[in-house]
Computed example of a mutant assay.
Amino acid sequence: MYFLLQQAVAAFTGSGGDWGELITEAEYQGVAPLLAKHLSAIDCRLPRETRRQLQGLCLRSRRANAIRGETTASVLTRCRAAGIEVLAVKGVALSTFAYSEPGLRPMRDVDLLAAEKDLSRLQEILVELGFRLVEEESVPDDFYHLTPLCKEVEGLPVPIEVHRNLLPFHAQYQRWPLERSLAGARSITIGHGEARTLSLEDTLTHCYLHGFQAPLTYEPFRLIHVADLVSLVETYRHEIDWQLLQHHQPRFCNVLSRLHFLTPWQDDVVEELHLVVDDAPHGVGRPYRGWPQRKLTEEPLSQWWKLTRETIWPAQWWLQLYYGHLDGVWYHRMRWFEHPRTVWRWMKTYARAGRKSSKRDTR
């Protein structure tokens, strides 16, 4: 992998690539600390300003995650004292056990999953600890998480989202309340305190659904979602119950095989999981950029044909990643039936929303 990285760096510098733009993109993708770690490992000669920028991002991520970790630990301690079951999920958990150090996995906020009956008491505990509602992010009462609460700790805002359901309430997802994962929860350490999170199998499932099979209106996947899956598989592949995972996600290994063309798996991972990595699909790394993620009204008329084509005929790599079929009859069914049906459902959703809006206006 480091040999490939050296080649990539040589090609980048040889073509006159802009390090500033690269760092900006790495920060957006959530992988700036990983970029710094691996460039350091190959002793890459970076421009002084670039090295300073990367070091600053790494220090900021390390400090921010340490503060968020200790704050989360204090919240979980109070929850245990109150007899409230809580699972720490997403970034705050992944940063502690999927990476060699927590600072390598940036996060935007802290996510906690609790039972419906405990939501009010958990919110009260957060208020008692000094957290306040983020008014500009107010959400409906039946949303899958409560309105975030935030507290400033050592000058850093620490927002916490309390979830009643791990994934958005959407027809594309099954319901995922606390009860679904509580029995198989695993113990981890966050900050200097005990915590519990999803099982490895549930963590992998959530990383895939959240990062790569989100509704078409959501933002495209980011490279940090790729890093999460790669880190989990390569670190814990001998502990993961692959039969159980395949039972719940039959096409999961097909998904892993598509990631190989973005960042190659180790040979033993390919062999053990029987990944299909012979022929590279078209459009590797290109996310979905069609409607309804992009709106016709927001595009110039000259771009409408391109938007229509990207909606109806997205990149092969993304299509395989999103729907999980690689070839044969099922691939063609996915290309000609499943994806058009998904787009058609979104058209009906927007049409219904438009009719309801019209009715309200006439009143």
Rank of each mutant, 00 (worst) to 15 (best):
D142W: 08
P168A: 01
N65Q: 06
R222K: 13
S95G: 02
L4E: 12
P292A: 03
V127Y: 04
T217V: 15
Q266G: 08
A32N: 02
V277D: 02
L321R: 01
T308D: 05
R258I: 11
Q123Y: 01
L126W: 00
A353E: 10
D278V: 14
Q293V: 03
I42P: 10
L182A: 09
A88V: 05
I312F: 12
R80E: 14
R108A: 12
P157G: 04
V158D: 00
G56A: 11
F12K: 08
G69K: 01
R286L: 15
F3A: 14
A82K: 12
K295C: 11
R51Q: 14
E194Q: 13
C44V: 13
T217E: 13
Y288P: 07
H274I: 07
D268N: 13
V284A: 09
H170T: 03
R48V: 15
T13K: 13
T263R: 10
S181Y: 06
R108G: 11
L209N: 03
T362F: 12
E219S: 11
Q246M: 09
N165P: 00
T297Y: 06
T217A: 07
P159I: 10
A8K: 15
P140C: 04
F131V: 03
S187H: 13
P281E: 05
L262Q: 08
L178E: 02
P157E: 02
L39S: 03
V162H: 00
L146S: 09
E299G: 02
S40E: 13
Q55A: 11
R105D: 01
L87S: 03
R237G: 00
R121G: 00
D327C: 10
A66S: 10
R335F: 15
L112E: 02
H192N: 11
F261M: 09
